[in-house]
Design a protein around this nucleic acid. Structure first.
Length: 183
DNA sequence: GAGCTGATTGTCT
DNA sequence: GACAATCAGCTCT
């Protein structure tokens, strides 16, 4: 399975398979512990209405970054899979560049650095300069040849008003670095 | 621990 | 002009 082929699969398969992978941006980051899947034909997806200027990267090649601004405030990072599908990176266990993340976030508690898509974006320096960039190359560093986590949690996605019950949120069971507990 | 509210701005109808 | 894949800070329990 090549790097690009890893992403050229059903997004609901890619999202759980990313748990345990290491993501760094300019050497800052850690282990992915929480993800969500969004499909082209999924009413909750930014791609659902079809291609627009904002979601263009979601219709580009797999294994590239889709970045969007949330609530006019936060920058959130996604990995593009098949056309119109992407995985939202929701939480990371910090392992590298922790001091820089503390500085960027303005908090000390390591659990508060990357426990949510907006927090993670701030901690890793996510911004529009990363839009559409390949995940294979710097400033990204993404290892997908990782051991499978011992147990996964699955549940509905967070913060949506559509497709509220689709269970496409995935997490490493019991991780203290999740954005929220799974019920 | 759960639940509410305001902040803030790009995007699309 | 409505709304959003969020967060921090607040209340109450």
């Amino acid at each position: 399975l090549t790097f690009a082929d890893f992403f050229d699969r059903e997004v609901s398969d890619v999202a759980p398979d990313l748990l345990g992978a290491t993501l760094l941006i300019d050497g800052v980051g850690g282990i992915i512990v929480e993800t969500e899947a969004y499909r082209h034909d999924d009413p909750a997806s930014h791609a659902f209405p079809g291609p627009t200027q904002r979601n263009a990267a979601m219709f580009g090649p797999p294994a590239h970054a889709y970045v969007y601004r949330s609530y006019g405030i936060h920058w959130c990072l996604n990995f593009v899979c098949r056309p119109g599908a992407a995985v939202l990176i929701r939480a990371i266990e910090p392992t590298q560049g922790i001091d820089l993340m503390r500085e960027r976030r303005g908090v000390e508690d390591i659990r508060q650095l990357c426990s949510g898509p907006g927090k993670l974006g701030e901690a890793l320096g996510v911004g529009p300069h990363l839009y559409g960039l390949p995940l294979r190359l710097p400033p990204f560093r993404l290892s997908v040849g990782h051991p499978r986590p011992s147990a996964l949690s699955v549940g509905p996605r967070i913060g949506l008003t559509k497709a509220v019950d689709t269970p496409w949120r995935f997490g490493i069971a019991g991780s203290p670095f999740l954005s929220r507990r799974f019920v």
